[in-house]
Design a protein around this nucleic acid. Sequence first.
DNA 1: ACGTTACTTTTCAAAGC
DNA 2: GCTTTAAAAAGTAACGT
Lengths: 186, 205
Amino acid sequence: MTDPKDTINIENVVASTGIGQELDLQSVAMDLEGADYDPEQFPGLVYRTQNPKSAALIFRSGKIVCTGAKSTDDVHESLRIVFDKLRELQIQVNEDPEIVVQNIVTSADLGRNLNLNAIAIGLGLENIEYEPEQFPGLVYRLDDPEVVALLFGSGKLVITGGKKPEDAEHAVDKIVSRLEDLGLLE
Amino acid sequence: RLRKWQERIRTKDAGERNLQFALSEIDRMASALGVPRSVREVASVIYRRALKEDLIRGRSIEGVATSALYAACRKEGIPRSLEEISEVSRVERKEIGRTYRYISQELGLEMRPVDPKKYVPRFCSELELSEEVQTKANEIIEKTAEEGLLSGKSPTGYAAAAIYAASLLCNEKKTQREVADVAQVTEVTIRNRYQEQIEAMGIHG
DNA sequence: ACGTTACTTTTCAAAGC
DNA sequence: GCTTTAAAAAGTAACGT
């Protein structure tokens, strides 16, 4: 009788911020160890942090995207490292740049197998996308919270598109009660 | 004013030429796949609806035409896999799949997942397997799908495994390679689905 | 027949083509 | 629309051994 909510795990957090200063990415790429910069391929410079593990995309405008962190705390820690690295290169970085979480990817487990065919019909074909020839997961878009859920035959699921950890909890609650109402859980 | 008239005629002609091209492509692909005329008609209707709803913007005419045909085959109960469809189209499989999902969603086609049993007659006939094998394969699909084994699995691989198992049970053995070739899946997929299916059926193979 | 790697889906920001 | 980055889910595929 494990509450599916207790199985929720944050797998990835995407956030954006900015140092409030324009950057010469060419010189940052020269001085910053481990930086990947190929403007022909992508306008952002890629810098990876090891602890916590994440990847930062640094742009000419001074805006930065951080992805790969496992929590919002890790996002802040990763970006603190990036800010300090830039300061070491004599680049002015704002005191406490505002960090906005843009997306949180979560996984969870409903604890029992799912009959995706029955769920597709039950939730309504107009509300879902299920094309097992192309992808094994059933795509279910929720309005509140505004997230997208991927349901698998194993009962495991992925919740993405949320901006706060509670979004995933609410989504799992709604999915569980919806499936229970339809008699499709257990 | 005369220029506007000419432009309208030019646009109208271009539009009609595009529609004619799309319909002739649907016809060409349908012939190559050997599907009945009714499927081409359903595909034409879907294409015209997509055109009317302005779903072709930002997409290729061929991509929408191919996806309309793929959807029509499924709606008519004689599905062709994306792999098979892409062989007669110049549009790649991935693009056909995503365009199909888009028009299906936008037109509210409410397509049901493909039933693997729909592939059994065609695959078995290509393998020259008897009616008995087909019936057995359908039985295997029916029973194991009820137990939830079908969730997330590709219909062609599922059908292929059931046909392989049925051919063994009916002493009309086909190799995994032979079945894999007609279903256009790998032997690995047949092996994996086959193991699950015979276990669920309580067969010893 | 293994094992490994890699691709499919969803989400999001960034700047530029 | 595309490009890049990360991550999970499970299925399928293509390598090499």
